[in-house]
Nucleic acid binder design. Structure first.
Lengths: 329, 329
DNA sequence: GTCGCCGTTGTAAACGATTACAAGAACGAT
DNA sequence: ATCGTTCTTGTAATCGTTTACAACGGCGAC
């Protein structure tokens, strides 16, 4: 016995399929009609088929959020924010992971044309011409949580990480730490380049000389440890700014291995202000790049564009703040 | 200009829709036919509509993984494992979050009848009759990563947490810690009850008296801190076992607030052996409940059941091990 | 040359919903 | 009594695929 269809319900209720559909969608009908249909639905345990429905109406009432690395705690903050906005608007949110490769991301964006969802929020790590092209040509609205050039013609909401790094440097110098090193993620990623540039600018602004720069292989804990190892092999900075919280925690572990204490010997600042920042020990001073707000705004942009596909693309920048915790003096 | 359909491709190629479909699905056709169709597809940028396809063939080639709390790092381990197995088998994995409430879970399971995916892996926190019923009656195969009674008639893969706690207690006593306290998650959850029972059994086995038991409000970091506060207000155990890693990290923070050091003053053991365990400081000794293996096996069970819906339900138990790190002596 | 067979292609009917359109009922106004 | 209006309901087309079935052409065997 297979699932009942609308035709089965119609037969059971002794009415037409059109009437069943109308009742189900809350269109006007007599009390008796509503009654009969609902009884039949109840009796048969009928549940409408979303595939058939979306084929006909051209919408799925699902939205997709694509993240590069589920292990990065910054995404949980974002995911929560997106979920909240999206479900309040009556959409289901589904999360998929792309690999770290840009080709995976391109495949995902192209794949949206298959009609999996009505829209996409994507936070790409690496961006190239192919990806921009696929986003521009995407069949469904796309919002990029991150930085892509305006020519992509797409809604974006991004962080201001140079400004964030400036806040970190300002805080560290105010506390008397002048010898600041920087542990970045891969330079071929979008946040990687932005943060490298931000660090250089900030150091210039404060007339400081960098106490060492390391490019980690990844935005991960393990890569952070590696980077820390390399860094402390050649220098003893008074502070380290890290391009995200996972890297920062990795670096702190490495510091401990060297017998250095945080923040007395070395101050450490992370970025993202994710849940990990408060969970780490000592709790991590971290640049809040507004992940929650970025998630929220991205979701709102997506909904707005679904409502009006013709509106001109918005580019929102969310301002950072600094969450001071105990990893800095 | 809307997306091209198979009819458009057929027209452009000067062949019938059936032929296009056949070429697209790799069914036998002449070289010339394949050639013409592929050119037309290329030219128009045709992408088949997954909704229409799945409506017709009755399969979506998507699988759903439902998790209760994306903030819990144990799920990232699991997600990675599931993703790997599932994508190797040619399925797309989509992740959705249920709330902590059982009604959300029931709604999700019922909702699967709408045809969102070909199968579901769910890891429910709380289980009641409604949920069991909905799982038993679910239109698509369901695998439960967790513990539901056999009468649910469903494939399950669960951890052996009592055994895991036994390992923890054994380890602690071997290191000379006899005064062991336990910080559990909510008792009305499935893991909560299992772990409470496991702790009691383990203490009995080792002829020890509990040095305090606290039920945290949630399986979260914040709840762990609260629980730690309560615990240390009334007792000074030599060791604390926590029902998951987030709770353990919360407890360690509270210990630090009391000026107690880990592991010298108090040893701490977590459960799940998630990525957080190695990221925490000191790195957390944690009971490995086999999340990765559970994820992998759950995915395999799901694929097997999709292949053969009639096979009798399997109930797999994954054995725990202990990952000793520096939070215990 | 005719027949049968096989391989390739096309026609049309599904899948399960929504919805434009038409038909019928009810009712008041003339 | 007739007509027009409005409200409710049913019939059938449609969304974009897949696929059963039929048609056709080519080819070898007799």
């Amino acid at each position: 016995m297979s699932r009942p269809t609308i035709a089965g319900v119609a037969r059971a209720a002794g009415v037409s399929v059109a009437s069943v559909s109308r009742v189900l969608n809350g269109l006007p009908a007599t009390e008796e009609m509503v009654e009969r249909v609902q009884r039949a639905v109840e009796e048969l345990g009928y549940v409408p088929d979303a595939r058939a429905r979306s084929l006909k109406v051209g919408r799925t009432f699902q939205l997709t959020l694509a993240v590069a690395d589920v292990g990065n705690p910054v995404y949980v903050t974002m995911m929560r924010a997106v979920e909240e906005v999206v479900s309040a608007a009556g959409y289901r949110l589904v999360v998929t992971t792309t690999g770290p490769d840009v080709v995976d991301e391109v495949a995902l964006v192209r794949g949206m044309a298959r009609g999996y969802a009505d829209g996409l929020v994507i936070s790409p790590l690496r961006v190239d011409e192919d990806l921009i092209k696929s986003i521009r040509e995407c069949e469904v609205p796309v919002v990029v949580a991150g930085n892509v050039p305006p020519k992509a013609g797409v809604d974006t909401v991004r962080a201001n990480s140079p400004k964030g790094i400036l806040l970190a440097v300002e805080h560290l110098t105010a506390k008397g730490r002048q010898e600041i090193a920087f542990v970045n993620g891969p330079a071929d990623t979008v946040p990687g380049t932005a943060r490298a540039k931000g660090f250089a600018e900030a150091m210039k602004e404060f007339k400081l000389r960098s106490a060492g720069e390391i490019e980690a292989a990844d935005f991960t804990f393990a890569a952070g440890r590696e980077a820390g190892k390399k860094l402390f092999k050649k220098s003893r900075p008074g502070a380290v700014i890290c391009a995200n919280d996972l890297l920062a925690v990795g670096v702190m572990h490495e510091l401990a291995a060297y017998g250095l204490s945080v923040p007395q010997d070395v101050a450490v600042v992370g970025m993202d202000d994710s849940e990990l920042a408060e969970q780490s020990f000592p709790p991590l001073t971290s640049v809040n790049l507004g992940s929650a707000e970025r998630g929220r705004r991205a979701a709102e942009l997506l909904l707005a564009r679904i409502d009006d596909p013709a509106r001109s693309p918005r580019r929102i920048v969310v301002q950072p703040s600094l969450s001071v915790r105990r990893s800095t003096p």
